[in-house]
């Protein structure tokens, strides 16, 4: 037998052995995956953003199929449409979906609050925050270096005048920005909300005045004017109890520094 024939034979035999082994293994070792999982997976956007609290869309799809108690509305980027289509696949009813959006809890752009230092370091909020709490006079406020904008996969955050702004139409409320902000300024809140307090400064009023012209001075006018007792001063900052709030807007009208804003105006 010539060596060429031998070579061809040996490689063919090895190949056949491997093929048989693999095809047998694929039958024997087959993991029974619920056929619903790929169907549910199809409904999800596939961005793997993690807003649902699972590692990715696959994780959420598996959890949906395996756990009948799992809510269908955890995919905020997908919104109501996705919840409905999952409901159709699984034969379950999707709960009410509340449209959410990211909200920046600060309005102090360059014209409202001053810088206390000239910062020439790495252009990143988390780095700047390590230097004496950041560049701004207000140590609670937006640093404006754009960590949130960089983290946003949808380009829904822009930095203007040293302040982050959310573009409501682009925001899918995945919450990635909330995790990157070193000041913890960004919240995921219902899109339709009568009023929001857009300040995070916990200093006393007089000090806030010196730091920023648009910071909550904890004067308490909003508390006095609220007809349903839904707004309180907590730690020198007005906080709205959205379960109580009837959306009359009285607090917004009386706020002397205009940190209470109606929804839709957002931070932009």
């Amino acid at each position: 037998m010539s060596s060429a024939t031998l070579a061809v034979m040996i490689v063919t035999v090895i190949g056949i052995i491997c093929a048989v082994m693999l095809s047998v293994a694929s039958k024997v070792m087959a993991v029974k995956e619920d056929p619903l999982i790929p169907l549910v997976r199809e409904c999800l956007p596939g961005a793997n953003c993690g807003a649902c609290g699972f590692a990715g869309c696959n994780g959420y799809a598996a959890a949906l199929v395996e756990d009948p108690e799992m809510e269908l509305t955890k995919c905020t980027p997908g919104g109501e449409d996705v919840a409905k289509s999952i409901g159709k696949v699984l034969g379950r009813k999707a709960g009410k979906m509340v449209l959410m959006t990211a909200v920046i809890g600060c309005r102090g752009d360059n014209s409202k609050t001053a810088r206390k230092m000239e910062y020439k370091g790495i252009k990143s909020c988390s780095a700047a925050a390590m230097m004496f709490g950041g560049t701004g006079k207000c140590k609670y406020g937006c640093l404006g270096l754009g960590d949130c904008a960089a983290a946003c996969p949808h380009g829904a955050i822009v930095i203007r005048d040293g302040l982050a702004h959310v573009i409501d139409e682009k925001c899918v409320a995945c919450g990635l920005c909330t995790k990157t902000c070193p000041k913890g300024l960004i919240y995921i809140q219902p899109y339709y909300e009568a009023v929001r307090v857009l300040c995070s400064n916990h200093e006393k009023g007089a000090l806030v005045r010196k730091e920023c012209s648009i910071g909550c001075i904890a004067c308490g006018l909003c508390v006095k004017n609220c007809p349903v007792d839904a707004i309180h001063i907590e730690n020198n900052l007005a906080v709205i109890d959205h379960d109580e709030c009837i959306g009359c807007g009285a607090c917004r009208m009386v706020c002397p520094v205009k940190v209470i804003i109606g929804s839709g105006h957002g931070a932009s």
């Binding site: 491997c18 093929a19 082994m21 693999l22 293994a25 694929s26 070792m29 993991v31």
Partner: peptide, 11 residues
């Protein structure tokens, strides 16, 4: 072939 097999076994 082997790695494919190992992957199946692990799975």
């Amino acid at each position: 072939a082997l790695v494919q097999l190992v992957e199946m076994v692990l799975k």
